[in-house]
Design a protein around this nucleic acid. Structure first.
Lengths: 237, 237
DNA sequence: TTGGAAGCTGAACATTTGTATTGGGCGGCG
DNA sequence: CGCCGCCCAATACAAATGTTCAGCTTCCAA
């Protein structure tokens, strides 16, 4: 996304209110977008007001309109920006920039912010988030069929549903980060809380939590339920 | 919840618009609550208007106000009703009423409806949903420490995080049912789509998707990240 | 230097939306 | 039979909110 020609800094004419330190050097347009990103992520699109975004960015409500035309335009800009960041970070990570700790630190910081936005956008019905979800499913499905080093081939007859469910599981902990953080007593979207949750997730995947008998029994019951649904019956699941 | 004395049926004065068949015999109060339940689940609390609820229930907006006082009151009533239904169904299921297929069918139908509402309520910031989440974590933690028949003890040093993450994973697929349904081409909240997703979920839990080496490597990396976070460093996760 | 374009502000406007109020119709009860 | 209480509809009101607009300031270019 082009950021415009980014004309000079503060005018200082009417006394600029004390602003966020880290956001001081950003274009007003970028500041508005970042503020919207955070507010959308926290309260949803409908729960966020233009005036609230303007106040958080330290600008007037009119300027939001001026730059993004409408609230929908602002949301679209947030979608695209989050998409770009996530895409860029993914590529850089795959290219093996992970050995630079400084890069990883800042990358994770911005990436988690965008992931938080996208998680909320998934529930808010954003087209961009839905597209990202679909892409993640496609990519996961490809990986499952041609497993990466360190991975085994999944034991299933329905790779598509398997991949979709994996993506939903991973996305789900992002969407529910608020509750997870409350229960764990640490924000799972920061380095304080994330490792603890990730460890639990790996353990859950690695564990043989269910006995083979229970697994087989459950799968058999599900098969029966699916059959009943197919044949038109309305039996319970 | 008391449903009031359910005074007589339609007045027929202004010609009652054609209503839902199954909802015909319900009190206006119950119809309003059910309509709100569905609309809240689909569009969120903020995305739902009193007038929309009234129209869906086939009553006037004033009546909503009359019965529930305010929008917040309506949401509270929805919370309590969903809570009651889920709690009741859980007890009945545990008491072994599962062998009656007719009961199971209707129980699943209402239960899935309430689960859908609760899933959205989790994101909308409803106190009731948060309480339900907490209760689920507590119960899961108890089960993990004293496993039921068919289950093994989890292999972890952090049962609390383990339980919380399990609950988040299970809730997550409910919250994201819209995207899961889109990708799978069938509503995962009905008997048509649910078994397929449940099967995938069981397979994911049962699978050894990651090799022991990768698991150990990931856990080691997470330990390092957690240590760095504890000691105040800002290293990547 | 000067003209225009862009950044930006503050107030005004129209719509939506939650809420309050008034009034009518119906059944139960003295 | 007549009154009262409850259920319900319709209207009115006020706050919130997305959007528009006129005007000011700053910067770049000719």
């Amino acid at each position: 996304m082009a950021e415009g020609s980014a004309g000079g800094g503060d005018t200082g004419a009417t006394g600029p209110a004390p602003r966020d330190l880290s956001a001081e050097d950003l274009t007003a347009r970028a500041r508005i977008r970042d503020a919207a990103l955070d507010l959308f992520a926290e309260h949803g699109v409908r729960g966020t007001t233009i005036r609230g975004v303007a106040a958080a960015a330290g600008v007037s409500p009119g300027l939001v309109q001026h730059h993004f035309g409408s609230k929908e335009g602002l949301r679209k800009a947030c979608d695209e920006h989050a998409w770009d960041i996530l895409r860029t970070n993914k590529f850089k990570a795959l290219e093996g920039g992970m050995d630079d700790p400084q890069f990883m630190a800042t990358a994770m910081a911005t990436s988690l912010r965008m992931q938080r936005y996208m998680a909320r956008a998934l529930v808010d019905g954003s087209p961009g988030a839905a597209a990202l979800f679909d892409e993640a499913v496609t990519m996961t499905e490809a990986i499952l069929q041609e497993p990466w080093p360190g991975m085994n081939k999944p034991n299933t007859s329905d790779v598509h549903a398997y991949a979709a469910t994996v993506v939903a599981l991973v996305s789900g902990v992002m969407v529910l980060h608020e509750h997870l953080s409350r229960v764990l007593g640490a924000n799972t979207l920061t380095v304080e809380g994330y490792p603890r949750m990730a460890k639990a997730m790996v353990e859950i995947l690695a564990d043989d939590l269910l006995t083979p008998e229970l697994i087989e029994g459950t799968l058999a019951a599900l098969r029966k339920a699916a059959d009943r649904a197919d044949t038109g019956g309305d039996g319970g699941a």
